[in-house]
Amino acid sequence: MLELRLVQGSLLKKVLESIKELVNDANFDCSSTGFSLQAMDSSHVALVALLLRSEGFEHYRCDRNLSMGMNLNNMAKMLKCAGNDDIITIKADDGSDTVTFMFESPTQDKISDFEMKLMDIDSEHLGIPEAEYDAIVRMPSAEFARICKDLSSIGDTVVISVTKEGVKFSTKGDIGAANIVCRQNTTVDKPDDATVIEMKEPVSLQFALRYTNFFTKATPLSSTVTISLSNELPVVVEYKIAEMGYVRFYLAPKIEE
């Protein structure tokens, strides 16, 4: 028996909107730790890791570990039917081939339930090694989204370079080239508006903008984004989910042949 009650149901709606274009089908894993997911896109270029910790739910009952295969597009369709202020409860019985999403309006005058068919998905978990990153950039998530969008109108790939000067996003295309440099800036009114750069080693990596643009669909989840880079490792683009956990996107770099 599984019953997870999330008062801020809009968080789950935003999570689905942030990953449904990158991943088609995925297993949601439920354990005493929380509600989580790890999945790759169909070309195995990017990986998404989601964690919603059990403490973040108003009620969290998970009698035994359960893995539920879902089509994310279909799940997003159902969650779109929940109001932004609704409380969402996820329910499943042991051995059932369906999951139920229950939506309660804040005043309890409208209660809906949507039953979705589960699917069998063969997926193996990947071990993500703990890494010490050469550079970690924290910046406003809207700024990162803007940069990815702007650069993708010029080129297909972005080179992200961190030096002591700041973080530089560069692209080249048929019509020309573009460079955007963001310097560390902590003298802001709101801490979330800061750009903070921690650098151990200079790093420069090239990525496909098609994927970074998928990641920025998570912008509504968090006002800041953390980009962790090491030479010759996948970049980690992390959006924290207030009080609950995170969505992390890992993207394999482009490699010189």
Binding site: M40, H44, V45, A46, L47, E124, H125, L126, G127, I128, P129, T157, Q206, A208, L233, P234, Y250, A252, P253, K254, I255, E256, E257
Partner: peptide, 14 residues
Amino acid sequence: DPKQGNILSFFKKK
């Protein structure tokens, strides 16, 4: 042009 890397060459199956 640089070649697109693959996640499976960085992270191994458990």
